[in-house]
Design a protein around this nucleic acid. Structure first.
Lengths: 117, 117
DNA sequence: CTAACGTGTAACACACTGGTTACGCTTCCG
DNA sequence: CGGAAGCGTAACCAGTGTGTTACACGTTAG
């Protein structure tokens, strides 16, 4: 999973998916590299569990699986805790309020085939 | 920096360094791979800024630079925030108290040559 | 001084990753 | 139907990363 994040292209894909669910083609269009290359990056993300894909018609929609990130954050926390820890918590707390405001207007779930891979 | 964490050996090194500062040789002894291999892993960690090294006599002590982890955690937070966020914060808050208790008895800083690379 | 120690570096072999083009398989549409 | 659309896969190639052994260099010790 850490390896999935190691690639800059995959990181960009994750950022793109942070806002909205996207079909493979549209993701590929936003990169200079070929579509098959992006397709393989998507497969890596899929197998790492960081994204989930949904088949709808002839296109395949990708979306984040936020729950998987928590594990990584938790692993990293054991190091952040060593020093400068309280400082970080303060920063997080202020973010919470900002985030709670932003949380309205998020895409509603629909019912189609799911491949969590 | 994400690439530095992508390797399992380097992750193990980081975990080892979480508890105490260690010389290169002792780190190498804990792995099955050759010492030069470990030495290069240490170089990667050094260049990524995740660890700092201190020359003392003829050995080189390595220690974590916890501040660098915060950046990665912050980057990951933008994804965790998408959903299940409050849940995570609760888990963090309970950890804080546990951690504050553990924070006494940490090695005091000494004055030797520092190479942050 | 010289020998042993503790580490990093160089040179090399080899597996893996990421890119490309060609192709196959479903699904929609005229 | 039959062709176009949308994606994934296969085969191939270049670059990179990781492991190994041999070696160089500064430091401590006898």
């Amino acid at each position: 999973m850490a390896a999935a994040i190691a690639d800059p292209v995959r990181r960009d894909i994750l950022v793109m998916l942070r806002e909205q669910r996207l079909p493979a083609g549209e993701i590929a269009d936003r990169f200079m590299i070929s579509r098959p290359a992006v397709s393989r990056h998507l497969r890596v993300l899929r197998e790492s569990g960081l994204v989930r894909d949904t088949l709808v018609g002839r296109q395949r929609l990708y979306e984040l699986d936020a729950s998987r990130f928590a594990g990584l954050v938790e692993w990293l926390d054991q190091f952040v805790r060593v020093t400068g820890w309280e400082h970080r918590l303060d920063a997080l707390e202020t973010e919470v309020y900002r985030t709670r405001r932003e949380r309205r207007a998020r895409g509603p779930a629909d019912h189609r085939q799911e491949n969590t891979a």
